[in-house]
């Protein structure tokens, strides 16, 4: 569950205010908005990468407003995927677990499990340099899910992909969400993406975020 109350956050001259938002446990929510509407500011605030001015952020039953990013239990897939060029795919999937000092066999099991869920078992020993857009997305998704976070945040993850790969990723995201039951907030400006995935819809505009009926996705295009 993600619950945001009266959030006020600033990014330079830009600010978002009075943001109230609730994504129930296990729900796939989509946040839509134009470039510069504050989507990324909101996302960084939720992750703890941006200090908020006021308001509260809850993940599950914990108030995480003052916690460090790593203590919030949030898996992030950033806009440009930001894979680590010095690591193999396997090291990406193991990274968060190694930081948490999990036993090696538990890590190996989890890596296998993720690799088969995401269809990247054949890539495990590759470095990220030669991966295709879709493959990179899968690795970024696996890295974000590896430590079983309560919440998954996706920042325009599919914007750089071609149409066919995008449809494939929609199916994968739905599948992952069904399998893991992770509460998801997916940021996009692509309406067809919203239609394909949203169980709940939010719209960022006029420096705040409002909930919108799913019909709005159909109506607008």
């Amino acid at each position: 569950m993600i619950q945001i109350e009266q959030l006020h956050a600033r990014a330079g001259q830009f600010a978002i205010r009075d943001v109230n938002l609730a994504v129930p446990q296990g729900c796939y929510a989509v946040l839509m908005g134009r470039t510069g509407s504050g989507k990324t500011t909101l996302l960084e605030s939720i992750c703890g990468l941006r200090q908020i001015v006021s308001g509260r952020i809850r993940i599950g039953d914990r108030d995480v407003s003052d916690l460090k990013p790593g203590e919030r239990g949030i898996g992030l897939v950033p806009q440009d995927v930001a894979l680590f060029p010095t690591m193999t795919v396997r090291q990406h999937l193991a990274f968060a677990l190694e930081i948490r000092r999990r036993p090696p066999d538990a890590i190996a099991d989890r890596v296998e499990e993720l690799a088969s869920l995401l269809g990247i078992a054949h890539l495990l020993d590759r470095y990220t340099a030669g991966l295709s857009g879709g493959e990179s997305q899968r690795v970024a998704l696996g890295r974000a899910l590896s430590f079983r976070p309560g919440v998954l945040l996706l920042d325009e993850p599919l914007s750089a992909l071609d149409e066919a790969t995008r449809d494939e990723m929609h199916a994968l995201l739905r599948d992952v969400q069904r399998t893991t039951g992770v509460t998801t907030l997916h940021i996009t400006h692509n309406r067809s993406e919203g239609r394909a995935l949203a169980q709940k819809l939010f719209v960022a505009e006029a420096n705040t975020v409002r909930e919108a009926p799913l019909e709005e996705l159909a109506k607008r295009c």
Partner: peptide
């Protein structure tokens, strides 16, 4: 790019 380090922070670093 700094974003990779920021992702690492969310992963628990």
């Amino acid at each position: 790019p700094q974003r990779r380090e920021l992702v690492a922070l969310t992963l628990g670093c």
